[in-house]
Amino acid sequence: MPITIKELHIKINVDEKPEIQGQASGTNISNTAAIVATCVEEVMDILERQKQR
């Protein structure tokens, strides 16, 4: 019997720290953007697979 997930709750905590690192913070922003883009791609793949069922 397959399991169907109807709701998914995600809770996160974000601690913002002042940017005092200069150039390193720019690298963190690009890394964060890459991580977000990868996550969005994965979610879209999952949703596409669900449509095919």
Rank of each mutant, 00 (worst) to 15 (best):
M1C: 02
M1T: 07
P2Q: 04
P2F: 06
P2M: 06
I3T: 09
T4A: 13
K6V: 11
K6C: 05
E7C: 01
E7G: 02
L8C: 10
H9I: 14
H9K: 12
I10S: 10
K11T: 15
V14G: 02
V14E: 07
D15V: 09
D15Q: 13
E16Y: 14
E16V: 15
P18K: 03
P18R: 02
E19F: 11
Q21E: 09
G22D: 00
G22P: 02
G22Q: 02
G22L: 00
Q23G: 02
Q23T: 12
A24S: 08
G26H: 06
T27N: 09
T27Q: 14
I29D: 05
I29G: 00
I29C: 03
S30C: 04
S30F: 01
A33Y: 14
A34I: 03
I35G: 07
A37G: 14
C39M: 09
V40I: 09
E41D: 12
E41L: 07
E42R: 14
E42Y: 13
E42S: 13
D45C: 10
I46K: 09
I46F: 05
I46P: 03
L47V: 12
L47P: 00
L47G: 03
L47Q: 10
L47F: 03
E48S: 11
E48K: 15
R49W: 01
Q52H: 07
Q52P: 01
Q52A: 12
Q52D: 04
R53M: 09
R53Y: 01
R53F: 04
